[in-house]
Design a protein around this nucleic acid. Structure first.
Length: 199
DNA sequence: TGCCGGATCCTG
DNA sequence: AGGATCCGGCAA
């Protein structure tokens, strides 16, 4: 089933946790691209100093202040896109950053927020778009992730956010598709994970 | 109007 | 370890 606003309106940390294992689906140019969500981060503005919305309502953060179940897409470092899914009712500027997917058939490497957008053909034209077919949406296919594999860590790349940086608001489904390995865990073989060939 | 840093990725 | 590359936010 397709997840709608009543899924995304809830507590952002709860939405983030429950997004693990769901399918992110992108339909573009007659193709259906998808992957299973394995890494997300919760951004709980405006209090959360790591969240873009901690600076208040601006043209960029406008979508985060809108209703739940919409895409917030922004450009970072001048060359990459990052996809967020807006949570909470309108007026509460929070969202979940999509950091990594286990790619579906024919989909390229999706381990990292920029790579997710590259692999699924997501850019700023989707900023503010509602999460529903036929362009971009999230599907629950009934597969429940093994709770043993769910790991929480601090968020990536938000060192500037002071005490907010250390909160365990990154949610991972442990495995080979994370943007960065989870600390304190080893691969099944016990050795270093083989570096995936780049493209 | 101008400057500066960034929720990144890739190569050396 | 550093470069690519540009937009948004803030100061002036």
């Amino acid at each position: 089933m397709v997840l709608g606003p009543d899924f995304f309106v809830r507590e952002t940390l709860e939405v983030a946790r429950e997004l693990l294992g769901k399918l992110l689906v992108r339909e573009v140019g007659g193709r259906v691209l998808w992957g299973r969500l394995v890494e997300v981060e919760a951004y709980c503005g405006p209090e959360d100093r790591a969240a873009h919305s901690s600076r208040g309502l601006t043209p960029r953060t406008r979508v985060m202040y809108g209703p739940p179940g919409h895409a917030y897409v922004y450009v970072i470092y001048g060359m990459h896109h990052c996809l967020n899914l807006v949570t909470r009712p309108a007026g509460i500027p929070q969202a979940v950053l999509i950091r990594a997917l286990e790619p579906g058939p024919g989909v390229g490497r999706c381990s990292g927020p920029g790579l997710v957008c590259r692999a699924l053909g997501i850019d700023r034209s989707l900023n503010g778009a509602p999460l529903r077919p036929p362009s971009l949406y999230v599907v629950d296919d009934g597969v429940r992730p093994d709770p043993e594999l769910v790991v929480r860590t601090p968020r990536i790349g938000v060192e500037y956010a002071g005490e907010w940086a250390s909160l365990p608001w990154r949610f991972c489904l442990d495995g080979p598709y994370l943007s960065r390995p989870v600390r304190g865990r080893r691969s099944a073989a016990g050795g270093p994970v083989e570096r995936v060939r780049r493209r």
